[in-house]
């Protein structure tokens, strides 16, 4: 059957990508646990700051994963789990959430193999999921029409688990990097803070695009619906500045990230209000949780903004990072 072969294909891509991600780690022996402990004793000052940033990134990745877990749970239930692949984001984001919690609690300056694999898997799931959603919309009658963009599989949604994976994966790279006086922490030989800033900036823009599409579907009937399409792009600009700028103190960016954290959580409040305005309100939850504005979606902004804050700290502590 077409569906099953597609599922196998995706699984294959996923497995391949994970292998690829892991194989890239092979030339980096310091990532192993024992040398890492040694690093901890050798460079305690740098590492503690880096580990703190890494843990905050774990936390951000966890929040994003939570959002994905709940959102894909609701949306795929609405889709009656017609394709077994629709369980994938639930399993992966659940696992990502768990290992992010683990990472948030983990003070050690070393990458963790299970976390690494899971984050990589999350990122790959995001990519494959995006492919899936594009395929699904494209094959519907009318193709990429407004109708299908509004009501078909949301094209941008799987990107949230990709971002969670990327941020988490970066966090692991951060833990295992060995910053010294000349050079800040690095991810794939790039300055960690700046690279993350770029990821977050792009992530904010992508998430904005998703909100813009769905709020357009809602005809921006409430002026508050303009907030998630105006505030995050400014945040994206500020993070871009963090990425390429020369200053180390990013007061505006920091404040703006806090604003976006608040906006994300407030968004869920607004969405709850939206659900209450549907016929029957929460008493009619079996319909309205599915039909109303998605409760778990807005905190993805908060997750990204938390990652942004970690990233800004990193840049402050390691101007070269």
């Amino acid at each position: 059957m077409k569906r099953q072969s597609l599922f196998l294909l995706c699984a294959g891509i996923g497995a391949g990508a994970v292998t690829l991600a892991l194989s890239r780690r092979q030339p980096a022996p310091p990532a192993n646990r024992i040398p890492a402990r040694r690093d901890l004793s050798n460079t305690p000052q740098h590492s503690s700051g880096t580990v703190r940033a890494a843990r905050r990134l774990n936390r951000a990745a966890g929040l994003l994963a939570t959002s994905v877990l709940a959102d894909s749970g609701v949306e795929h239930y609405r889709g009656s789990f017609k394709n077994r692949a629709m369980f994938t984001p639930l399993i992966v984001s659940g696992a990502t959430l768990a290992i992010s919690a683990h990472g948030t609690a983990d003070m050690r300056p070393a990458a963790h193999r299970v976390r690494d694999v899971t984050y990589a898997l999350a990122a790959v799931t995001g990519l494959v999921g995006t492919g899936f959603h594009f395929y699904n919309v494209g094959r519907k009658l009318g193709g990429f029409s407004w109708q299908n963009l509004f009501y078909g599989a949301p094209l941008g949604a799987p990107m949230a688990i990709l971002l969670s994976g990327l941020i988490g994966f970066s966090s692991e790279r951060l833990r295992e990097s060995q910053p010294d006086e000349q050079q800040g922490p690095e991810i794939f030989d790039l300055p960690a803070g700046r690279m993350l800033a770029a990821v977050i900036s792009v992530g904010l823009l992508g998430t904005t695009a998703e909100a813009a599409l769905l709020h357009f579907r809602g005809a921006y009937h409430n002026p508050a619906m303009y907030l998630p399409v105006t505030l995050p792009p400014i945040g994206a600009l500020l993070m871009a500045q963090v990425c390429v700028g020369t200053r180390t103190r990013h007061v505006a960016a920091r404040n703006w990230m806090w604003l976006l954290v608040a906006m994300g959580f407030a968004g869920s409040g607004f969405h709850a209000y939206g659900i209450s305005r549907n016929m029957g309100g929460f008493a009619n939850w079996s319909q309205n949780i599915l039909a109303g504005p998605p409760l778990p979606a807005p905190p993805s902004f908060s997750g990204l903004a938390l990652a942004g804050l970690a990233c800004i700290d990193l840049v402050r502590e390691h101007p070269d990072a």
């Binding site: 609405r78 009656s80 016929m279 029957g280 008493a283 009619n284 079996s286 319909q287 599915l290 039909a291």
Partner: peptide, 17 residues
């Protein structure tokens, strides 16, 4: 069907109720 209506509208799409 009121207050609860339907969510799944496509071909072979059955709401649990």
């Amino acid at each position: 069907a009121s207050p609860r209506g339907y969510v799944r509208l496509d071909f072979n799409d059955r709401d649990s109720w």
